[in-house]
Amino acid sequence: MTRPQLKTDSSLWPGVAAIGLFVVFAATFLTAELPDPSGFGADAALMKSIGAAMFGLEATNIVSEGTAISSESFLVVFEIIDLVLVAALVGAIMLARREESGETVTVAATADTDESSSVAADGGQSGGDEA
């Protein structure tokens, strides 16, 4: 019969390091003297204010009921994140895509490919370096 067993042959140091780090953090945080949280107030229109901040709008123009919380504009950051997301999407597709023949494009080919050249100018596909 097999059943889950505790792994006892692994090193204890990562666990000790993580717990030690937590102890240091906890000691720092619990001895820190922070004033009482100021909070946002019970009738604060948080979601609408966040939306206004993300698109660089004035929160008081958006919020009809509740208290508007004014913030700085994050429109430029929003656009940069937009570009980063598109780049990541394209990067993920580039890494994962397959060719029409069903062969995978290997970005980092291993030693078992029969490439004679060490430079993969063709995106790492096998063969075709002779020309």
Binding site: S49, I50, M54, S71, E72, L85, I93
Partner: peptide
């Protein structure tokens, strides 16, 4: 919440978007 300032919450939204981008590339790798 501590400072009654919205910037932290907006920043965390952007961090989530960055985390999504990171996961997309990470899964590709």
């Amino acid at each position: 919440l501590q400072y009654g300032n919205l910037s932290g919450q907006v920043f965390s939204l952007f961090t989530m978007a960055l985390a999504a981008a990171e996961v997309a590339v990470g899964l590709g790798i």
